[in-house]
């Protein structure tokens, strides 16, 4: 989705967009809401298929966070390959409690569950395009 295509002419600024993929609804919510409160727009997907559907619409996505273990045929690691095929420059954070360190993936960052939200925010800040962060900080100050 281009900026001009943003939902039905809301007139809202285009925030940095995070695609969040997590099958546990309460965990997804506990991650999504603090991200929104921090000024990010969050696209929520409950599994890899939903994430691919969202990413394939052309919707602007600036960073993806995905759980590794998810139901269905595609887990978070496989999803990291698919998302990179769709958006090669997309930074991806994998989160897992039990992923083997030897497993090949296309993630740019990794968090082991359980983690503190501050750890996630720090990683998001490290990986997000600096242009977005500057814009967000300017907006927060004004």
């Amino acid at each position: 989705m281009s900026n001009s295509d943003a939902v039905a002419g809301s007139g809202r600024e285009h925030s940095a967009v995070i695609l969040l993929v997590e099958d546990e609804v309460l965990i997804r919510l506990s991650i999504a809401e603090p991200l929104r409160e921090s000024g990010f727009a969050v696209l929520e997907a409950g599994n890899a298929s939903e994430a691919i559907a969202l990413a394939s619409t052309g919707h602007a996505v600036d960073l993806a966070i995905t759980d590794v273990r998810m139901p269905g045929g595609i887990d978070g690691v496989a999803l990291s390959f698919t998302l990179k095929d769709i958006h090669p420059a997309l930074p991806i954070i994998l989160i897992s409690g039990d992923m083997s360190p030897d497993r090949e993936h296309r993630g740019d960052g990794f968090l082991r569950k359980p983690f503190e939200l501050s750890q996630l925010m720090n990683l998001v800040t490290q990986l997000m395009d600096p242009a977005w962060l500057n814009k967000r900080q300017t907006r927060n100050v004004s």
């Binding site: 939902v7 609804v25 409950g46 939903e50 969202l54």
Partner: peptide, 29 residues
Amino acid sequence: VLVRHAIADYLRGCGYVVVEASTTDEAAT
């Protein structure tokens, strides 16, 4: 997910906090 996302985004634009669920089981949770 595409319909849910659009409706949720619309409602957020109206000032609501929106929780998204893909199934009635998630909604019950």
